[in-house]
């Protein structure tokens, strides 16, 4: 009996499985690499990193905007929730959170905050609500990235905006 048709069919099925696995695994792999890069520079997870504005030498995250100041934390809330605090400047500003599969599961901007600052608790479940006035955000994954964006409205405003974003913090509860 000829076995080559079975071999060809088997190879095609295996190729299809590997194709699907690649498509599903890529976002996790790329996110893992980004998290490792940020955590290495920040000195660990649950710590903020304050990179300089992006230039052609910035090779960490693809397609950065040179008009924004980015502040980033890798979160790891498997053991304890995280308290995120930041002043909110008088320019476009946003705080966004990304799950380990790259999904943007939370975003808030300066116009949606009422006071000059923000405090958010990031947790894996809502038990962190107990005794906390701060807004609690439930993350779909225990690891991911928190990203603050501050628009550099003008060269003159840059020092003030830079000083404010350096007060953004990520600290375990």
């Amino acid at each position: 009996m000829k076995t080559w048709p079975i071999w060809i069919a088997g190879t095609i099925v295996l190729a299809a499985v590997l194709h699907i696995l690649t498509i599903f695994a890529l976002p996790y792999g790329i996110m893992d690499r980004a998290m490792a890069g940020i955590a290495a520079q920040a000195g660990g997870v649950n710590k903020a990193l304050y990179p300089e504005p992006a230039t052609a030498g910035s090779r960490g995250i693809v397609r950065p905007s040179p008009d924004l100041l980015y502040t980033a934390c890798v979160y790891d809330i498997g053991a304890r929730p995280l308290r995120i605090t930041s002043p909110v400047p008088d320019t476009y500003w946003s705080l966004s959170m990304f799950a380990s599969n790259t999904d943007n599961f939370f975003v808030v901007n300066d116009r949606q905050t009422k006071t000059g600052g923000i405090e958010i608790i990031l947790a894996t479940d809502d038990t962190a609500k107990n005794g906390n006035d701060a807004q609690v955000v439930i993350a779909p994954s225990s690891r991911g990235i928190i990203l603050f964006r501050s628009l550099i409205a003008s060269d003159a405003a840059r020092p003030e905006i830079d000083a404010l974003r350096r007060q953004s913090r990520c600290e375990p509860l």
Binding site: I20, P27, A34, S94, S96, V107
Partner: peptide, 26 residues
């Protein structure tokens, strides 16, 4: 982009060429 509704191909494409992109309401 950035949404949990993204199909696996869109999510993978964004991961390669637009990681940490915001969803379109923002």
């Amino acid at each position: 982009t950035g949404s949990a509704d993204a199909d696996p191909y869109t999510r993978a494409r964004i991961a390669i060429g637009g990681l940490l992109a915001l969803s379109r309401s923002e």
